[in-house]
Design a protein around this nucleic acid. Structure first.
Lengths: 190, 190
DNA sequence: TCCCTAACGAAACTATGAGTAGCGTAAATG
DNA sequence: CATTTACGCTACTCATAGTTTCGTTAGGGA
């Protein structure tokens, strides 16, 4: 097919694995491209031949851990929404990628293109799934008809980012269900 | 009292004002200490004589706009809580400091001491006020007794940070009331 | 008034880390 | 064996936070 020496996929894997390792050890601020290269046993130029910037490389590194949020569907939209929230909280709390994400966010937001890619790959697919579930729940009369789906999603997922970023403590995976119940049932005395 | 040439308070003000201006123009990532010095008509050394780092300087610069969230108390804890949330959303959405805060968070979190000071000055006072209001509301039977105050606060304030950081769009000040109603009343059909 | 002391400005400096350039070598295809 | 692209290596450029040095200025106290 193509001419010349082919790229070595093993090097891709080594680079991404080294990125995750270093992310776990020191977090995003301490992640140095030179260190990734050394850890992966690869030249720095090999990294920049594959990704245009450190940010893109990290995005690919965390993709595997964060990208796949498939859950089996039960047919009950509220139950599916709860499970989607649960697995999302779990990924954010229990994976290297999730724990690094808060510190990553500023770097991402500083670069428009990077931010767009991040939302396209991780945020929007998740929100579209949630939006569909919310609509089905409204149709079935399980949610109030005047609910703003975006507002509801913000209330559900907001704490998972707010806690690590602002408070510096993770949102435990167990809090997913608690948040879900709180938002669905409300906390007021009727 | 003290010996030698006294510090010029006008220079402090000029530096903090220049910081806010540049923050408004280009956001935190584009904020350069040299630019602040030039804009303030001051030498860079004068800045570093006052603050140990860029982060501390910015923290002081945003303090005035974010720090004072005093609202008059009505005596009704739920109403007071709503107003506290309202003014918080307003500050985050409508001040230079608030809009810069999301981009600032990573820088802050990268520095333990800075993060601690940030929480001590801005986060904890606000949460303690909210916590007191929640307890009073529970005592008066206006909130369910099994409410976890931290969880409730996270659900209320989370979206205000989640939207700008993750979605890249501000949380409108008007959404404060909507979030409040949603969380208090719940979205489920009883 | 005259020191003493600390603040100030200016310029040159260090340190760090992202990203690039040039080149010799290795591994594929034909 | 020739061509082409990947790879490693070394040495760079560039930007920016933070420092150092020193001559100058503006106060307070005797």
């Amino acid at each position: 097919m193509s001419i010349g020496r082919p790229r070595d996929a093993a090097r891709d894997r080594a680079i991404l694995a080294a990125t995750l390792e270093l992310l776990a050890e020191g977090g995003y601020p301490a992640l140095r491209v030179d260190d990734v290269a050394r850890r992966a046993g690869v030249a720095k130029t090999t990294i920049y031949r594959r990704w245009p910037s450190k940010g893109e490389m990290v995005l690919d590194a965390i993709a595997e851990q964060l990208g796949d949020r498939s859950t089996e569907e039960t047919g009950d939209p509220l139950e599916d929404l709860r499970r989607l929230l649960q697995v999302t909280y779990e990924r954010l709390a229990e994976t290297v990628a999730g724990r690094a994400l808060p510190a990553l966010s500023a770097e991402i937001m500083a670069d428009r293109a990077l931010a767009e890619e991040y939302r396209r790959r991780f945020v929007h697919p998740l929100r579209e799934r949630a939006r569909a579930l919310i609509h089905r729940a409204v149709d079935r009369g399980e949610l109030r008809g005047d609910v703003d789906p975006d507002l509801l999603m913000d209330a559900l997922i907001g704490p998972a980012l707010y806690r690590p970023i602002v408070l510096g403590v993770p949102a435990p995976a167990a809090s997913a269900s608690a948040i879900f119940d709180l938002v669905i049932s409300g906390v007021g005395h009727t």
